[in-house]
């Protein structure tokens, strides 16, 4: 699987986290610090536990499910520094917005060309609104 991480192709990276956040929470024996979550999980609970996690993979079951965008934004707002990875229905036409809200890793769908996808980051180079990318709103610059 092709992974883009920190704006470059990643050749060596951890596999997709397979432990679901709810299971991680329930089972004290789990020692992994990488979880898989999605919009159906309890977000307040995820935010409260984020500091114990190094990889949070947010799953897009379908590309139309936009909840993951707000989840990433809120994790970054809370100061989460670890990896936020987009998994599932992830294609090049959405990773720029994902990047802006705080995702820093993208596990691309099978049919996606990773190099072509990489070029999509920054395709629109100016932004009006503040986001997790640290740039303020247009009027503050």
């Amino acid at each position: 699987m092709a992974l883009i991480k920190d704006q470059q192709l990643s050749l060596s990276h951890a596999a997709t986290p397979h432990i679901r956040f709810a299971d991680w929470l329930d089972d004290d024996l789990v020692i992994s610090d990488a979880v898989l979550t999605n919009g159906a999980d309890d977000l307040a609970c995820l935010l409260a536990n984020a500091n114990k996690l190094s990889v949070i993979a947010i799953e897009f079951e379908t590309f139309a499910d936009g909840r993951g965008f707000s989840m990433a934004r809120m994790l970054r707002r809370d100061g989460y520094q670890g990896e936020i990875r987009a998994v599932g229905d992830v294609a090049m036409d959405r990773i720029e917005f994902m990047h802006r809200v705080g995702f820093n890793a993208f596990e691309l769908r099978e049919d996606q060309d990773a190099l072509q996808a990489l070029a999509k980051l920054g395709e629109v180079s100016v932004h009006f609104q503040p986001s997790a990318d640290g740039k303020g709103p247009a009027y503050m610059r």
Binding site: F63, G66, F97, V124, H127
Partner: peptide, 10 residues
């Protein structure tokens, strides 16, 4: 503010 808002496109 709303134009190409990355969080509220889906």
């Amino acid at each position: 503010w709303s134009t190409l808002h990355p969080e509220f496109a889906y």
